[in-house]
Design a protein around this nucleic acid. Sequence first.
DNA 1: TAAATATTTTAGACAAATCTAAAAATTATT
DNA 2: AATAATTTTTAGATTTGTCTAAAATATTTA
Lengths: 220, 220
Amino acid sequence: MLSISEENYLKTIFNLSDSGKKQVSTNSISKFLKTKPSSVTDMIKKLTVKKLLYHKKYKGTNISSNGKKLAIQIIRKHRLWEVFLYEKLKFKWDEVHKIAEELEHISNEKLIDKLDKYLKYPKIDPHGDPIPNKDGKIDIKQIIKLSNLSIKDVCIVSNVNDEDGNLLEYLNKIKIHIGCKIKVFDVIDFDKSLEIEIDSRNKVFISNRVAENILVTKIN
Amino acid sequence: MLSISEENYLKTIFNLSDSGKKQVSTNSISKFLKTKPSSVTDMIKKLTVKKLLYHKKYKGTNISSNGKKLAIQIIRKHRLWEVFLYEKLKFKWDEVHKIAEELEHISNEKLIDKLDKYLKYPKIDPHGDPIPNKDGKIDIKQIIKLSNLSIKDVCIVSNVNDEDGNLLEYLNKIKIHIGCKIKVFDVIDFDKSLEIEIDSRNKVFISNRVAENILVTKIN
DNA sequence: TAAATATTTTAGACAAATCTAAAAATTATT
DNA sequence: AATAATTTTTAGATTTGTCTAAAATATTTA
Ligand SMILES: [Mn+2]
Ligand SMILES: [Mn+2]
Ligand SMILES: [Mn+2]
Ligand SMILES: [Mn+2]
């Protein structure tokens, strides 16, 4: 059994490593979790003893296959709770992440199984992130950043960064949501901002920064 | 903001004090929470500084009105989650208490408001305990122990002790549940055990000990 | 009411998770 | 390659919640 802190570190390392593909630096973990690098070093040692991480002094950290399995189960819980909060309790999509950060640490396998069933085995969370199944398997779609599209491209929004509440609020305002259709009308050379049309209705300009945080699947 | 430990102590003291009516001994808290008396003394000091308890060395502990308010809100959360687990996720009534012990510590007022609404503002939890409303008000019914009834009395089960999973499992087995009707057929002089008929169907004997843990409202 | 017993508190220790300050190692710059 | 800057680790401290052992107080029993 892991403590809440251990779970948060493990999940963060899994995410920062791009699902275990890359090495993670001590500083990046410390920045993400808003703890000091020295605290991160301590926790890395602890999780390494538990064989959830590999670590060589001064070199960087990799997640082990056991670590991956545990991290994916935490993510599964997080995203199922997000669906519950969004679908059943009618929270806005920019409110669910913070609450799910707490709910994800409740450990009872039967609870998660029953929640999954109750929600009818959802495949994605309210931000378009895939929900791992009980065995840890994750459906991955071919997705690209909206900022990579060109004039006249059309796409469906499949995912947005759920870490930043301000971004989600802004997307609410301009009516961008998971599953909506976006057509690129113009790409401004000066700052790479985009003029887009959302669901064949409202036309707006969005910055390149915003476009980088919206993941889409091209449909033409 | 209270820690999970502080919340558990506060709730325990509220319950052991019979909703604030009685003084609570250090040992009784320690027994209930399975911690040592010295740990209890430490926590009492901390909660006294926060003005949630009154305490005089060697004399005993009383809960303050602020402490009562907080305890009632934790109980509200606990019982609402129990209703969710029982009604929506279809857990058995003997399974929900343990999980609710964790869920009750998630602190987000909007979450509890929305959960309450979603469950249609339930008045009692799966064990018949009243759910305090948002302002902390609790409906109290005229309830007595089943063990206090006499031959030919009829009653409705309104509450059972939810702390002991074994009791709940046993009640499941003999089909006693909240709202069921019980008629007393005989009271055995020797050990005060009862012969009862449940919902005009199955007749069984139950021990005095069991009858003491079933609260009912008389209907004749 | 004095002694025995039980309860409660104090003193000091420990593990977990964090921090600051300083040392060690790595990486970037001249 | 030497120096400067950055990153990472170590050493030691702090807070929270727990423990054991012993001391202080209260209660029960003889
Ligand atoms: Mn999230
Ligand atoms: Mn979390
Ligand atoms: Mn309960
Ligand atoms: Mn609890």
